[in-house]
Design a protein around this nucleic acid. Structure first.
Lengths: 355, 355
DNA sequence: CTGAAAGCGCTTACAG
DNA sequence: CTGAAAGCGCTTACAG
């Protein structure tokens, strides 16, 4: 490896002068020297040793992306996470920093990775409140969370208005004449996006004099495997006639739910309406195209990086918590309900059957 | 930050003794000392400074994942890449290494990132031959490529049998009675997966006395945007009756192609058959479920890490090039063709229309 | 089993 | 504008 020392020797100057050229402190170097040295640097393809630099300056130019993971699942299989991570990495690079990605299963793994590399800042995906508190106690680099709900003061977070998303979903279904609506998603107990989508959904129902029958809340236990969702779809199919629509907390889940419904001869949207959440690519790839609550992932990713760098560059700067708006995107999976439709279709028998 | 020196002082021993404990060289430390020092290390939550260690040992415990990127596109939007990257990161972590992810637009960006951090090995996604040669010239850490075709000797690569995939696709369509078959995918000129899938496809056609009409090869120019694919679907719809099936080089593309066909009142598989490639989640989320050529992404990711570590641990070890098998997965998007079917359906008019 | 010395490649802080 | 000295936190190589 070429070092500063070698370049210095070749140029007949001191290490410091070369260092100044490398770091663009040209005010400290005579023009002739600067040019001559730069030429040698290029010829010899000198690349500074970041470890040495990091050790001397005790800062690293590394940003960590920390993903909550799970032994059995690949967090990046989720298009939501993958899109965020991709955008974040690109932004970080454009700012001249390096990205380390960590998939952690508990918050204990985190400070090890953060501190061993002198990481300058971190962006977290998928953390819950209790974990966040512990992370805060142990680490003191700038941190930005995405989609977290937390009671920690001075937390920087970029999220979306999940509550409003839930309301929008309920409202749009009610406006289309649905009154018996199911809820499908992961458990709602932890303080996260699902909980708030659920709360908004329930509140909007309530506002319209509707209450969610606990029997119509379908909880997908943590591992969101297709088979389990398809089974749920079949179960919901048995409620045909009593329940006419479902709010599903993600497009991914919605796609498999609709498959389950179809297997049981329930057609979406003719027999049953479904609204999803996220507006991922899948929502226009599937048939029927999915009506859903849209969020802007690019923006979520970009803003989280921007906040992080603001804190990085001026350490005293305030914690920022941004809540992005969501909006309803109407496609094909929600039908306007005429109360007698379902019975009609079925008395004329088989019209909705699949070939 | 707690340092070795502080621990040493607190324990009343030398830095070296603490270092030996940290690194598990317990044969060099008396049992009593080792235990006492370990206790202090735990209490003080000592985390070694990787930069210092890296500088002293000139090795870093960092593996780089290098993704070929593109200003306008998010490489991790591709579920194929995202799944690979997720699996690779998890494996690397499990082996006690750290992962840096770089998205590069030209091979020049690469050696900078590799060398500045003294990266010990790298896994590359999406590189073409000309780039690989240059990468090889400049860098000398162990490298493993995924899905690359290259003439570089001693290249480690993990790929799949793209050629056979193309043949399988053609064969399965021919077996189902299709003889006029279209090809849809990115350009086939560069030496990559698409080229070989295409070659296999053409060869199998030829073997059956069929040749691909150049007019029936639809090239999606580099940016694989949904709109462009949907338009292609509409164009293919105009060929109804003359072309009865298409081989599409990825499931992602297939999903949008089918949408384009549907917009033009061409039903899959009733009027037109489509076979994809990859067997991603989308192939079971969409309707009709996609018949496709399956590859095993987990395995591709795992093997690439294993090869890399073999080379890392025994520097002289041979370059390995693995070609994983592919297989046909039959679902719903390919129909057996009865020569007169199409005309029949259309003379009875509208039977295939969408509501 | 233990430790003092030298060095990894860079930067900071200072003297000239 | 230029450079010699000291130090960042660790490891290697060696002496005891």
């Amino acid at each position: 490896m070429v070092t500063l020392k070698e370049i210095a020797k070749e140029a007949g100057v001191s290490v410091m002068t070369v260092s100044n050229v490398v770091n663009g402190n040209l005010s400290k170097v005579s023009k002739e020297n600067a040019e001559r040295i730069q030429k040698i640097i290029n010829e010899r393809k000198y690349v500074p040793n970041s470890s040495a630099r990091s050790l001397a300056k005790s800062n690293s130019n590394i940003i960590a992306i920390i993903l909550r993971g799970d032994q059995n699942e690949n967090t990046l299989q989720s298009p939501h996470n993958a899109t965020l991570v991709g955008t974040i990495i690109q932004k970080i690079q454009k700012l001249g920093y390096y990205t380390m990605v960590n998939i952690v299963e508990s918050q204990e793994d985190i400070s090890q990775s953060l501190r061993t590399w002198n990481v300058e800042g971190a962006i977290f995906l998928g953390m819950f409140d209790d974990e966040i508190e512990k992370i805060y106690q142990v680490n003191d680099v700038p941190m930005v969370f995405i989609d977290s709900y937390s009671n920690v003061r001075r937390l920087s977070n970029v999220g979306i208005d999940d509550y409003r998303g839930g309301r929008l979903a309920a409202e749009s279904l009610i406006n289309r004449g649905h009154h018996k609506i199911a809820f499908v998603g992961p458990p709602t107990r932890r303080n996260g996006v699902v909980k708030h989508r659920f709360a908004g959904f329930c509140d909007e129902l309530k506002k319209n004099g509707i209450s969610l029958d606990p029997l119509h809340q379908f909880v997908l236990e943590s591992d969101v495997r297709p088979e389990a969702i398809i089974e749920t779809g079949k179960k919901i199919a048995e409620l045909r006639g009593v329940v006419t629509a479902a709010f599903v907390t993600s497009d991914q889940i919605a796609s498999y739910l609709i498959r389950g419904l179809r297997i049981s001869q329930v057609c979406v949207p003719e027999d049953f309406s479904v609204i999803g959440f996220d507006n991922l690519m899948i929502s226009t790839q599937m048939t029927p195209q999915l009506t859903t609550i849209a969020q802007d992932l690019e923006q979520k990713a970009s803003l989280s990086v921007e906040i992080l760098f603001r804190q990085l560059q001026s350490p005293g700067s305030p914690a920022e918590s941004l809540v992005l708006d969501v909006k309803l995107v109407e496609r094909e999976s929600v039908a306007t309900r005429m109360p007698e439709t379902f019975e009609n279709r079925h008395s004329s028998n088989g019209a909705n059957g699949r070939p």
